[in-house]
């Protein structure tokens, strides 16, 4: 308790110093991300089972998804991963203004991703492909097709929900960035947000080939 070191305003009383606090924050975030991997992992496991059982239906369903939109979203999300990595880098250097700029860029890209997703969903609505809402499939394999689109919507929907939460986190962090609360000594919230955002990017890196690119050559 009786530390002689200069007392940083962000240092919580139950930590000895900022190094310990930063280490704890990073580790906690990684533990949380391990949890997230398993959360999406349950979906991926279910997806794998049905892809194994109903490969033909999955090929047919996948061919109904527009590669252009999916590819565009992949590019957007990778770019946003880059911008958020830059934001963290600037926070480490105490460049307050640049952190703000990179955050805004990330926000724009994130909203762009969600916009594209909304367009795709509305197309699916018109094509009567949303299970639980208006799913209709008159061809063979109607059941497995419905299962494919159920996975498509649950997986991309859960991913989009994570994006929305990410945007919310940015809105919460931006006033703090403006108030110049973060610097080389204390930037854990920015860094942890970055880790979260990169994780969401990684999920999409797997979702894109697994949903959009099955059996395109057939």
């Amino acid at each position: 308790m009786s530390k002689t070191a200069s007392h940083h305003p962000a240092l919580q009383h139950y930590f000895d110093d900022l190094k310990q606090q930063h280490g704890a924050a990073t580790m906690g975030m990684w533990a949380f991300l391990a949890q997230e991997i398993m959360f999406f992992g349950g979906l991926f496991a279910g997806y794998t089972v049905y892809r194994y059982k109903y490969f033909n239906a999955f090929v047919e369903g996948s061919n109904l998804l527009p590669i252009a939109w999916g590819g565009l979203n992949t590019v957007i999300l990778i770019a946003s991963s880059f911008t958020v990595a830059m934001a963290v880098r600037c926070a480490q250097q105490g460049l307050h203004r640049s952190v703000f700029n990179w955050f805004m860029a990330t926000m724009v890209l994130g909203l762009g991703f969600l916009g594209v997703k909304a367009i795709e969903y509305s197309h699916k609505y018109h094509d009567h492909l949303i299970p639980g809402l208006n799913f209709q499939w008159d061809g063979p394999m109607a059941g497995p097709m419905k299962i494919f689109f159920s996975f498509y919507f649950v997986m991309t929907g859960m991913h989009a929900l994570h994006m929305i939460i990410g945007v919310g986190l940015m809105l919460w962090l931006i006033p703090k960035i403006r108030a110049e609360k973060f610097g080389p000594q204390y930037y854990s919230p920015i860094e942890n947000f970055g880790l979260y955002w990169h994780f969401v990017d990684i999920v999409w890196i797997f979702l894109f080939p697994l949903l959009y690119l099955i059996g395109r050559h057939l």
Binding site: F39, G46, P131, K146
Partner: peptide, 26 residues
């Protein structure tokens, strides 16, 4: 988290009839 997503899927199956756990749909 695995049971969380599982129970969520069951709830969605329940509300929207996704078919993931329904033998009638495969």
């Amino acid at each position: 988290p695995v049971v969380a997503i599982t129970l969520l899927l069951v709830a969605l199956e329940n509300m929207f009839g996704l078919g993931i756990f329904n033998p009638e749909l495969g």
